[in-house]
Amino acid sequence: MRALKVHRIAPGATVQDGGRAGYMAFGVSRGGAADRLALVEGAALLRQSPECAALELPGSGGVFEATEPMRIALTGAPMRVTLDGAPLVWNASHRMGAGMRLEIGGATGGSYGYLHVGGGLDTPLLLGARSAHLAAGIGAVVQAGEALPVGPDARDEVGLFLPQDSRFDGGVLRLVESFQTGLFDAATRTRFAQTVFTRDARANRMGMRLNSEGDGFSASEGLNILSESILPGDIQITGDGTPYLLLNESQTTGGYPRIGTVIPADLPRAVQTGAGGQLRFEFVPREEALKAQQRMTDYIAQVPKLCMPLVRDPSQIRDLLSYQLISGATAGDAAESEG
């Protein structure tokens, strides 16, 4: 079987694709890769469909081995990685020979790293997708000892690289008002936008708790409102005034009031904020949110063209002859900027 053998893996690692749209009426949120941009970037580096499933690695990676030669790409939160002991460039595509040992360590920034394979992970489709949806009980975390089936790969190109994005350092998340924003008085909303939050260590694919100094952010009638539909990006305030940012794998409805909704363009930054990372929120008008949405859509369309040849530094390659060097590659910046 063409497979990726898992010798060791981070707790909570799952197979993810774009998730399942269309089941909200049945109580199943879309789910899918926590960082959708990383999925798109991996597909572009391997010149394949962004619908291919990849391995989502929360916080750290694991040890993997290919049963057959295959192409791989690494995206999302940068992690320390070696192939048979030789360092690999993150945010790039590489060739992995049969029996070679891929070791992915802890994230040096951000939260979710992704390991993509040429042909995509070919695990069974459940309700139309391969994504594990842990909160819904669909699929399960990947365990050491498993061999993940890999689909046939029609392509051969590797050695592509994408510049590292800045979305792994926390920062400002833009919010639009939502239908429950008015449940919070103006002073509370202002204080919310002035507060620096720290991402709690307990964040997961459903959501992240946002910690701050000082009072909570309570709404009037907060514990008695009707449960209403939830969308990813909603910031829900629980009864004790603590904000939770709800993500792709959140529940589909909920009764705790929501102070606003992080715009889709800023969700990759939100999910990639590492434990202890700092976040602030800024309410923006709808027009600005639409511009950001357009820029994200443009970026997604452009990603395949932004991939550039990875220029390797020969001094970092242990066994030069085992690599198929890209024509013209001698020495370069990409590998040096890795660390």
Binding site: G27, A135, A136, S227, G239, Q251, T253
Partner: peptide, 26 residues
């Protein structure tokens, strides 16, 4: 309605006495 989690129903309505709030903590 079905919501929150897969196939999970909200059922009602109970008698007025059951108009009790959610807990403050989860």
């Amino acid at each position: 309605t079905i919501g929150f989690a897969p196939g999970q129903p909200y059922l009602g309505l109970l008698p007025e006495a059951w108009n009790i709030p959610r807990q403050t903590a989860l």
